[in-house]
Design a protein around this nucleic acid. Structure first.
Lengths: 103, 103
DNA sequence: CAGACATTTTAATAATTGTTTAACAATGGA
DNA sequence: TCCATTGTTAAACAATTATTAAAATGTCTG
């Protein structure tokens, strides 16, 4: 179970256009990850700006990084995303969740 | 399908402790909703502060309100939450979503 | 209609956040 | 070793956001 402050941090990390785009790239890529440079190229953002955003995402637990040679690979942490979603929908409709499930 | 800006707005709306607590109360309560006053009592927050947060949540599409007499009932909009989650996990792992589903 | 109640609006202030530029560290190939 | 490449850090500034207090709006009850 996540604490409220962790959830707020994760939501805040995703609540920014550049970071949301980064996260989606990483989700789409899967466990292999994407290098910082590839993300910079795809999003057309300055390296320093991205580095700032990577740090925010990492600190929120939503992404992880590993260094390979000169490259840094970032990957999405799916467990944290799933916990966050679980937190948001917890105890839905007082235990009668039919009213809030997708059709 | 939601647009990125809508998703960012919804995430930003939830990325604040008071609003996250409001939202969870509404999710737990279901379609009946909760009055602004009840939420103020449960969260021990000033009415003006809550009104500000309700507006943020409403504007993001996450909650709806209806007036009944002197009371305003707020309810969670589950469809928007589900769309938001779908947006975040879209195209997961390049179409091979096993790696990112909860166990 | 007068007064009490429920909630919103406005205006002001304090705190947080995003971007840029420049300088810095680490890696690997010539 | 020297240099180009990859990415991070630091400092400064602009912009956004949260909170409070006070005044205003709307709704019911007597």
């Amino acid at each position: 179970m996540m604490k409220p402050a962790q959830v707020v941090k994760a939501l805040a990390a995703l609540a920014q256009p550049t970071r949301l785009a980064i996260y989606r790239l990483l989700v789409a890529r899967g466990p292999e990850g994407v290098t910082a440079g590839d993300i910079a190229a795809k999003l057309k953002a300055a390296p320093a700006t991205l580095s700032f955003h990577f740090r925010t995402l990492s600190h929120a637990g939503l992404v992880e990084s590993r260094q390979e040679g000169r490259f840094v690979y970032y990957t999405a942490n799916f467990a944290v995303m799933n916990s966050m979603v679980a937190y948001l929908t917890e105890n839905c409709c007082g235990g009668n969740p039919d009213a809030c499930k997708p059709k």
